[in-house]
């Protein structure tokens, strides 16, 4: 079987499982309506406080108020897309413990494909992605950025790339479940780092920090680099190429996450712990 056929098969299987995930979503309830309001409120609070600070100080590390709004909103948008498709990857440790993974292993389909396609969380469509897009449009307007095809392409590719980066990181960290029973903790352990990257331009924390969030836990590709590309300051990135590299970073991050998953799965099968 050629690599092309294998990929097509995997994509077909992914779609089959994703369809089940989409159908599994139950109807919208008061619960989720209140959560939606609350999440939007929380984001508005964060943005308002950033606004309070930046209206006093005119800039943070050379970035103006609306550039920081763009930074924050891009993160939300990428987070939103990732949440939509792969929020459940956080639960890999639960799936290992409760036997869901064993069920996947007795089916003639790659367990990774089954895991990725397990659920679809359309409730998150508005929470993060919606709020993020509103923020992006608003910020672009205030910054006088016009939506040329090129800029639009950068935006879309960056959001998709950023969400892939996040998926890869979450997949890799959650796959640590195969080594330790408490893997949700690794995702939890990056939360503050994510908060920092989401709220502030990374370079104010120093070059080492930018390298950390570029090469080790590449959260900077969700928002920091795309903002530089969108406002036309790509040369301020360590290398101008990085400003446009979110899609590539996404591919690499998912590949790295998949490697950890594979190694972990092999370990699970051989140690069962």
């Amino acid at each position: 079987m050629g690599a092309g056929t294998a990929t097509r098969r995997a994509a077909g299987h992914y779609w089959l499982f994703l369809k089940m995930g989409i159908r599994s979503q139950t109807v919208y309830s008061f619960d989720s309506a209140l959560l939606l309001v609350a999440v939007v409120f929380l984001n508005v609070v964060d943005l308002s406080l950033l606004g309070v600070i930046l209206s006093r100080f005119s800039n943070l590390g050379g970035w103006t108020l609306w550039e920081v709004v763009l930074l924050y909103s891009l993160y939300l948008a990428a987070l939103g897309v990732q949440n939509l498709f792969t929020l459940h990857l956080n639960l890999i440790d639960t799936y290992v413990r409760d036997g869901t993974l064993d069920q996947m292993l007795v089916r003639p389909v790659s367990p990774l494909v089954q895991m990725l396609g397990k659920e679809f969380h359309y409730r998150n469509l508005i929470h993060h992605l919606g709020t993020g897009l509103v923020g992006i449009v608003l910020a672009a307007d205030r910054l006088g950025l016009t939506w040329t095809p090129g800029r639009l392409a950068i935006l879309v590719l960056s959001i998709l790339g950023g969400s892939a980066v996040l998926t890869g990181i979450v997949l890799g960290l959650s796959s640590l479940a195969f080594w330790t029973v408490e893997s949700q903790v690794f995702g939890y352990g990056t939360l503050q780092l994510q908060e920092v990257v989401q709220h502030y331009p990374a370079h104010i924390f120093g070059t080492w920090f930018v390298r950390l969030v570029t090469f080790v836990l590449p959260f900077a590709f969700l928002n920091y680099y795309p903002v530089l590309a969108l406002v036309g300051r790509a040369q301020q990135a360590g290398h101008p190429f990085l400003a446009y590299a979110s899609p590539l970073a996404g591919v690499l991050a998912v590949a790295a996450g998949a490697l950890v998953w594979r190694a972990g799965l092999r370990r699970y099968q051989s140690t069962g712990s």
């Binding site: 299987h13 089959l16 499982f17 089940m20 159908r23 599994s24 979503q25 139950t26 409760d98 036997g99 869901t100 064993d102 069920q103 007795v106 089916r107 003639p108 389909v109």
Partner: peptide, 27 residues
Amino acid sequence: IGVVFGQKTALWWDLPVAETFTLLRAI
């Protein structure tokens, strides 16, 4: 092979049984 774990269902929790069967037919 076919496997049943009595403690843990292989069916999609929120979907009608028939939907799982259709998926299994396909895979």
